[in-house]
């Protein structure tokens, strides 16, 4: 019985470890991302009986990863700083063409603005835009209604646009002009 569970557990790991690691890596440093990823699957083993089956397993793992990272990054301020640092340092710590890194001053401005959003708003926004989850899934994951997610995203968009607008003087256009050295 234990062997069957172990095999299923390994299958779960091999199916989702990469995306969970990517999730962590988008939000923290490389070493902490690996540590957090391992911890996510420690929790997964302990709660193996309660993990939803099939496609629902991944949102569950995202939820655990979010809690694990929150536990590691005690304060919200540290999370915000780490988020910006993680994205900024990503190119240095994860070399290789597979990373598909596109960094320029425009992106840095966006990341900086994301880092200044309230954590809950940022998380909802990124789960949708970066992790590619549907709003329904995010709502289930966070135990809130779909409309609450919609509100958070709308609010996050407004705040982000406002922050970027302060930087660019123009909310509706890309935030950093080419003359600033952007790769465009």
């Amino acid at each position: 019985m234990r062997e069957i569970a172990t095999t299923e557990y390994e299958n779960l790991y091999r199916s989702h470890a990469q995306v969970i690691y990517a999730y962590c890596l988008r939000r923290t440093t490389t070493d902490e991302a690996r540590d957090a990823m391992a911890d996510v699957f420690v929790v997964a083993w302990r709660r193996f009986d309660t993990i939803p089956s099939g496609d629902d397993a991944l949102p569950w793992l995202y939820g655990v990863a979010r809690n694990v990272l929150a536990d590691k990054q005690r304060s919200a301020r540290r999370r915000g700083k780490l988020f910006a640092k993680a994205v900024a340092n990503f190119e240095a710590t994860v070399p290789g063409p597979e990373a598909q890194i596109v960094r320029n001053s425009e992106h840095e401005a966006v990341v900086s603005a994301l880092g200044r959003l309230p954590e809950k708003d940022r998380e909802v926004l990124l789960l949708v835009e970066w992790e590619g989850l549907s709003r329904e899934t995010v709502a289930e994951m966070m135990f809130v209604s779909r409309s609450a997610i919609d509100k958070r995203i709308t609010r996050a968009h407004k705040r982000l646009a406002a922050v970027l607008g302060l930087m660019t003087q123009d909310v509706g256009t890309p935030p950093v002009t080419i003359e600033e050295g952007g790769e465009a």
């Binding site: 699957f41 994860v94 990373a99």
Partner: peptide, 29 residues
């Protein structure tokens, strides 16, 4: 809208790259 697109473009890990090698995955497992 442009904000959504800007957020997506700023994603440091585009797509679903295999960031960890098999050996690294095994070690973390």
């Amino acid at each position: 809208n442009s904000v959504e697109q800007m957020i997506r473009d700023a994603n440091p890990i585009q797509g679903e790259p295999e960031l960890l090698s098999k050996a690294e995955l095994d070690a973390l497992l």
